[in-house]
Design a protein around this nucleic acid. Structure first.
Lengths: 140, 140
DNA sequence: TTCGCTATCTATAATAG
DNA sequence: TCTATTATAGATAGCGA
């Protein structure tokens, strides 16, 4: 559509590419709004340019969030696996630390029945040292 | 574009609406692919029809997930508030527990210099009790 | 619903300022 | 870089099968 037809491949000339981008972006956003209204459908459109600028739209009375939820209903692909994975991993790590400390505290309370004589020695020492420190501080 | 121009408002006739939807959907997906290639940009397009069917596309070498991540970099709106919120809350809770145990362990090691006399008493007792238990176990 | 057709409308490539 | 212009390519509304 224009003075000549163009091949669909990356426009190498930077300024031509920028001009075409501006025009086509306006065009596609217009189309997206039109189809949303004419056909009463939910539309989400996000474009991120090479320079990192983003434009997004979605159909009236919707949010991208809503539309992403719809996406999840229909697709196996999860939109945020990485993010969730990371959060899950973080939880696991902190829980692991937690567990270790629970065990240590139990030991210091003399609550673990499965320890043998040799395992009890460092615990006894820790308690003795702790007691010394605490008494020293109380006295000061 | 067509035998007559149409006003941009919902097409009430159901079959006309369906036909227009099919045509325009094809058109907009084509445009989306073209701009992605021509201008080397990331595009995500999701359309959910009234009857609940969904179509989605995104630019080559990208995933919707990637593009959603980009969206998050640029927008205040979170696309998946609930899920993330829950995970964050869980992390906070576990971290809080963690912190409490770290403090308790420090106290039992006599490491906290900001405690007063009265705060030290229960710690001393805990240590004494722990020591009694551990020694009892060692002896058994 | 889904083609095919085509007159028309729209988007836009090329260009100039 | 934007903006405006315009000739053309492309999209599509209305119809018919």
């Amino acid at each position: 559509m224009g003075r000549g037809k163009i091949e669909i491949k990356k426009i190498e000339n930077t300024s031509n590419r920028a001009v075409t981008y501006a025009k086509r972006k306006a065009g596609i956003f217009k189309k997206a709004k039109e189809i949303a209204i004419l056909c009463d459908v939910k539309v989400s459109l996000i474009i991120v340019s090479g320079s990192g600028k983003m434009d997004a739209m979605c159909s009236p009375d919707n949010s991208l969030s809503t539309i992403c939820e719809e996406y999840h209903k229909h697709s196996k692909e999860k939109l945020w696996p990485a993010k969730h994975e990371n959060l899950h991993n973080e939880i696991e790590m902190v829980k692991k630390e937690n567990e270790n400390m629970v065990i240590e505290l139990r030991h210091l309370n003399g609550q673990d029945i499965n320890l043998n004589h040799y395992e009890l020695i460092p615990i006894e020492e820790a308690l003795e040292n702790g007691l010394i420190s605490v008494r020293a501080r109380k006295a000061s």
